[in-house]
Nucleic acid binder design. Sequence first.
DNA 1: GCTGCTAAACATA
DNA 2: TATGTTTAGCAGC
Length: 521
Amino acid sequence: MAEPAGAAASPDIDPDFEPQSRPRSCTWPLPRPEAETGGAGGAAEEGAGGAAAGPGRAEGARAGGAAARKGGSRRNAWGSQSYAELISQAIESAPEKRLTLAQIYEWMVRSVPYFKDKGDSNSSAGWKNSIRHNLSLHSKFIKVHNEATGKSSWWMLNPEGGKSGKAPRRRAASMDNSSKLAKVRGKASRKKPPLQSAPESSADSPGSQFPKWPGSPSSRSTEDSDVWNTFRARLSPILTEQDDLHDEELLPSLVYSSASSNVPPTVTEELELIDGLNLMSPSSSVLSTQQSASSGQIQRDSSFSLQSPNAAGQTFGNSLFNPVDISLQSSVSHFSAPQTLEALLTPSSPPPRDVMMTQVDPVLPQTGNRMSSRTLLLLGGQAAQSKMSSGNPRGKPAEQQAEPVGASVLPSTLPIVTSPQNTASITNLKAPVSATAAQSVQLGSPGLLSSASPAPLGLNQDRLPTDLDIDMYMENLECDMDYIINSELMDGGLDFNFEPILPTPSYPSTSQASNHTWVPS
DNA sequence: GCTGCTAAACATA
DNA sequence: TATGTTTAGCAGC
């Protein structure tokens, strides 16, 4: 299971450790059981006697662990470290500070004498279960989608340290409130009610439509709606406050998720729209860059793969906006490509939100970790669309949903594009917009841009210098924003008719609008 | 009561 | 089957 990637990591773990020659202190910076050094090497033996999947149950393990502990500071058969600590060490020992579950297993077997002879399937069930349990339980561990192997996720240490590294969510009793946020980090409960036939989930049928993101609307069960509401309630008005997203592991989790290209387009789209971190929809980019709206073929924007989990993991804060920058790239291409208008007119083409996103995005690199009120405004609209998206009859295949989303979310905006004068209007908008967007790309993440597929950028790249003056860029931005708002809204061009959700059309001028749109379906 | 370990049920790919 | 998540019971502190 340890694919190449895994193998890559292991060498680093392995070389350092020599179970035989190095009883137990091995490489890890453990608070080693100095007390009972004697037990050090003996951990294996005595451990073998009792713990883990040992005699029966916890009692057995207890017995083993307790017995071991009596010798000194050892709490477990393998030493004084908890599973969580061992896992942490395993991860830290990896060159990239991340390991797959299998690699963690491997590390345990290699590095912890006690587990050395417990690698086989029979005797490993118990402790492996505990490993998994701990990984899921502790917020100090974050799961990063592993697109490289396409299988097991990477497990990393929470850059925020998982705080004290203590378990954030405890038993059911303490799960009520405190765990809600913890759940939000992407581990929202997926548990189904015992006999819930889940009509919704059947409607959801492809219910697994958003399998990778437990917190996604479609994946949450009704009983999670409160959590979800809370989440959304927080996000909607707080989209501008990235800081808030930092609590728990929400941020890194989302970042990782965004960075993942394995997430189905619609998932990514919804996820990113919701979390407000990445306003870009891969599907949109696909359509725009490849002009394959009809084919529906999903071609991952190559730029997405640029943000490896690792990269993201090392720049949690800043990389947050990389996806946005990347998305801009697509948006830019969307506008710069001659045929893109055609794409816009195509029912299956990405909704005009790209326009908005393009307007929004440039702010991001400029504002650093904070979005302007304008961004908020636009995000509100974005959120609305997101909501609409999630409000669509679930259970529709992603391919299908992607299309209606665009068509139904902003039913009145598309016509704008189609009408001659509005087309002209849009056309007028396109130039500055694409320029600013492109600039933002440049400003936001030149590295990404340069390494991203240049093809889609084509026109803009030819037109734009590689490094633009930020002031100029901002001026354009301000100008465009006003222009857009004034011209489009004042002459009634934009009719944000959120009919499906909002009985009364409302202009998404503030977070209020976005709040409305977060109404759970 | 908190923490940690273990087992197990359940879900998903 | 592997991976993840969650719940529950138990024991030590």
